[in-house]
Amino acid sequence: MSISLDPAAVLWSTDAAQRAGRPLLVLLHGYGADERDLFGLIPYLPPEFAVAAVRAPLAPPFPAPGYSWYPIENLEDRDPAHTTAAAAGLVAWADDAASTHPAIGLLGFSQGAAVSLQAMRLEPQRFAFTVNLSGYATPGELPRDAELAEAKPPVFWGRGTADDVIPAFLVEHTTQWLPAHTELSGRVYPGLTHSVSEQELSDVRVFLDKRVAELG
């Protein structure tokens, strides 16, 4: 099962002629936001990337604004089906819209970060790296997890000590899961809530600059 992304609801950093042949960085917003939310990060990102900010496919329950990748009401539910459905939709969009790019990386916040990691688990060879901001790895096994663990793609995971949104069991699971399956660059930011700081963005830039160098 997958949930389709709206190709008309994608913000691109440049037009098609200027982005063809460049590595693509896909931005995935968090719960209750939209494709404009992370688009403001572009000045902090390496200019070598073409950037696409995609919109999540679901509308959260009223009165919450924006869009969501999957229902947030049952985070204690360890069934990965909802996250996997959203990730499958992202993979389908990437196969269609990002075919002219030599490499694809993902950068997600909160729900978007969870979907980014899940997409990498679905297609370990499709995505070059993931930036996980205030997110988590979804519990449960997927068929290609062993392949991912062998490939160990680079992942940046940043989170704050004052983040009270992500349940503790998900943080603990992610702490164990990421080093076993990825080449992890992790940083915990004292006092940071469920948000992104200037220091974190600086660390993300260092991580992404390394990816640019590796991609050539």
Rank of each mutant, 00 (worst) to 15 (best):
residue 107 L to Y: 03
residue 107 L to N: 10
residue 107 L to Q: 09
residue 107 L to H: 02
residue 107 L to D: 07
residue 108 G to S: 08
residue 108 G to D: 09
residue 109 F to S: 00
residue 109 F to W: 04
residue 109 F to C: 00
residue 109 F to M: 06
residue 109 F to G: 04
residue 110 S to M: 03
residue 111 Q to R: 08
residue 111 Q to Y: 03
residue 112 G to W: 00
residue 112 G to L: 04
residue 112 G to R: 01
residue 112 G to K: 00
residue 112 G to V: 06
residue 112 G to Q: 02
residue 113 A to N: 03
residue 113 A to R: 06
residue 113 A to H: 05
residue 113 A to F: 14
residue 113 A to T: 09
residue 113 A to P: 13
residue 114 A to D: 10
residue 115 V to N: 09
residue 116 S to R: 03
residue 116 S to M: 03
residue 116 S to L: 04
residue 116 S to W: 03
residue 117 L to S: 04
residue 117 L to T: 03
residue 117 L to A: 00
residue 117 L to E: 05
residue 117 L to Y: 15
residue 117 L to D: 13
residue 117 L to R: 13
residue 118 Q to R: 15
residue 118 Q to L: 02
residue 119 A to R: 11
residue 119 A to F: 06
residue 119 A to D: 08
residue 120 M to A: 01
residue 120 M to S: 06
residue 120 M to R: 06
residue 120 M to G: 11
residue 121 R to V: 00
residue 121 R to P: 07
residue 121 R to C: 01
residue 121 R to E: 06
residue 122 L to H: 08
residue 122 L to C: 11
residue 122 L to M: 04
residue 122 L to P: 01
residue 122 L to K: 07
residue 122 L to W: 10
residue 122 L to E: 13
residue 123 E to K: 12
residue 123 E to S: 10
residue 123 E to P: 11
residue 123 E to T: 05
residue 124 P to M: 09
residue 124 P to G: 13
residue 124 P to R: 00
residue 124 P to N: 01
residue 124 P to V: 02
residue 124 P to W: 02
residue 124 P to E: 03
residue 124 P to Q: 04
residue 125 Q to M: 12
residue 125 Q to T: 15
residue 125 Q to N: 14
residue 125 Q to G: 12
residue 125 Q to S: 12
residue 125 Q to A: 11
residue 125 Q to K: 07
residue 125 Q to R: 13
residue 125 Q to P: 12
residue 126 R to K: 05
residue 126 R to T: 07
residue 126 R to Y: 01
residue 127 F to H: 14
residue 127 F to W: 02
residue 127 F to Q: 09
residue 127 F to E: 09
residue 127 F to R: 03
residue 127 F to K: 06
residue 127 F to D: 13
residue 127 F to A: 11
residue 127 F to N: 10
residue 128 A to S: 14
residue 128 A to L: 06
residue 128 A to H: 14
residue 128 A to E: 12
residue 129 F to C: 02
residue 129 F to N: 07
residue 130 T to L: 04
residue 130 T to D: 03
residue 130 T to I: 08
residue 131 V to F: 08
residue 131 V to P: 05
residue 132 N to Q: 12
residue 132 N to P: 14
residue 132 N to I: 00
residue 132 N to W: 01
residue 132 N to F: 02
residue 132 N to A: 07
residue 132 N to T: 00
residue 133 L to H: 08
residue 133 L to S: 10
residue 133 L to I: 08
residue 133 L to N: 04
residue 133 L to W: 13
residue 134 S to K: 01
residue 134 S to P: 15
residue 134 S to E: 15
residue 134 S to N: 07
residue 134 S to D: 01
residue 135 G to P: 10
residue 135 G to M: 10
residue 135 G to V: 07
residue 136 Y to G: 01
residue 136 Y to N: 06
residue 136 Y to C: 05
residue 136 Y to M: 09
residue 136 Y to T: 09
residue 137 A to N: 08
residue 137 A to L: 11
residue 137 A to G: 11
residue 137 A to C: 09
residue 137 A to W: 15
residue 138 T to C: 13
residue 138 T to F: 15
residue 138 T to M: 15
residue 138 T to K: 06
residue 139 P to H: 08
residue 139 P to K: 15
residue 139 P to W: 15
residue 139 P to V: 14
residue 139 P to S: 07
residue 139 P to L: 15
